[in-house]
Simulated assay, not measured.
Amino acid sequence: MKKIYLLFVMLFAGAGYASAQQQYELTQFFQNPQALNPAFTGIEKYWQANVGYRKLWAGSSYAPQQGFVSLNGSFYKPDLRLNAIRISRPEAYMENLTDREYRKLNARHGLGLYYGYIGNSVTTDDQGQITYSYHMPLSRKINVSAGAGLAYLSTYLTPGGYKVRQQQDLIYQDLMQSGVRKRQATINVGLALYGENFYAGYSSTRMAFLKNTTDEGFEDQINYVEHTINAGYQLPLSHSLRLQPSILVQYDRLMEAAVYGNVKVRYNELLWAGISYRNKEAYGLMMGFLLGDHLSLGYSYEQNIYEFDAAHNGNHELVLGYRFFRKGYKANSYFW
């Protein structure tokens, strides 16, 4: 019985860690910057809502599935005097502002919401988060932001979703009847520095302040703070083309550092294509385009590196987005 109990402890502990990290294991992680670092909430001067779906191990009938919905944007007070300007280069008005006036006009607040899940026949992990940020120009070309997020994590071990050899075990019988659920509330904080052609950020997640579980065996689980660093750059290749490399690194004391990287080529605000890589896990291709001024669609395919994963085909990911209040800021996208 002790062996079976230890098996469930290991399974549940691993699922608990997955609930904190795998929610963000997305090829197109740049589509939800606020989920990685709350300081990136509202980095664009428009609002965007995203809906995504990720199918892992597409060749397996027991493969985990992942999905998310998100919303983030910024609040600011536009200078109404800009409406009266009738010149070919409106940015000349901004150049004539004093540094104090420029900072006051461009400081803004960001607000974001995120919900994601990943599940299979054994476990289901849910995560919801609300984020806030404050953005302040340091100069005409560089901005700094700080943010915080409140996240709720839940891992549920499904009753009847697994089988063991000794089915008369009392712990197994109890799990079959009621399942086990672990809940955790965390605070996430972050900082970011960005300009017209770059961004860089650092965040700390899983700073837990509340834990709850329906089984006493999981009450004392150790929780490690996770550190995340992400950065990206836009290199103009021509008037219409931009090269956009970006990297994401996640680390905690429990697991080996995870490195995500991608390189995209973007043609104006119409379409993009690129390649991606996750260290020792997968590599893939991705593409996307903008349908009109508001609707966007992104797709990616990953081929797993591990022999077991590779035998179950790859991962498909689809992200549908909609942009609100985007007029006037079409040339200023940091992440898309």
Rank of each mutant, 00 (worst) to 15 (best):
M1E: 11
K2H: 12
Q21Y: 12
Q21D: 09
Q21M: 12
Q22W: 09
E25V: 11
Q28T: 11
F30A: 08
N32T: 13
Q34W: 00
A39I: 01
K45W: 03
W47R: 00
Y53K: 05
L56D: 12
W57H: 05
A58W: 03
A58P: 06
A58D: 09
G59F: 06
G59A: 08
S60C: 04
Y62F: 14
P64G: 06
Q66G: 05
G73D: 02
L82S: 08
N83A: 15
S88N: 07
R89Y: 09
R89F: 07
E91D: 08
E91V: 05
Y93D: 04
N106M: 09
A107K: 09
A107C: 10
H109N: 10
Y117V: 12
V122K: 08
V122H: 02
T124P: 00
D125S: 15
D126Q: 11
G128I: 04
Q129V: 02
Q129S: 13
T131I: 03
M136S: 12
P137L: 03
L138D: 00
A151H: 06
Y152Q: 07
L153I: 11
Y156L: 09
L157H: 07
T158H: 13
P159M: 03
G160V: 07
V164G: 08
R165D: 03
L170A: 11
V180L: 11
V180D: 12
I187V: 15
G190T: 02
L191F: 10
A192C: 01
L193Q: 03
Y199Q: 03
A200W: 04
S204H: 00
S204Q: 14
T205Y: 04
R206D: 15
A208W: 11
N212K: 15
F218W: 08
E219K: 14
Q221D: 05
E226S: 15
Y233V: 10
Q234E: 10
P236F: 01
L241R: 05
L243P: 07
P245V: 07
I247T: 10
I247L: 15
L248K: 07
Q250N: 09
Q250S: 14
A257M: 13
V263R: 04
R266M: 13
G274C: 06
G274H: 04
S276H: 13
Y277K: 08
K280L: 11
E281N: 15
Y283I: 06
G284A: 05
M287F: 14
G288P: 02
G298P: 00
E302G: 01
I305R: 13
Y306R: 14
H312V: 10
V319K: 05
V319M: 10
L320G: 09
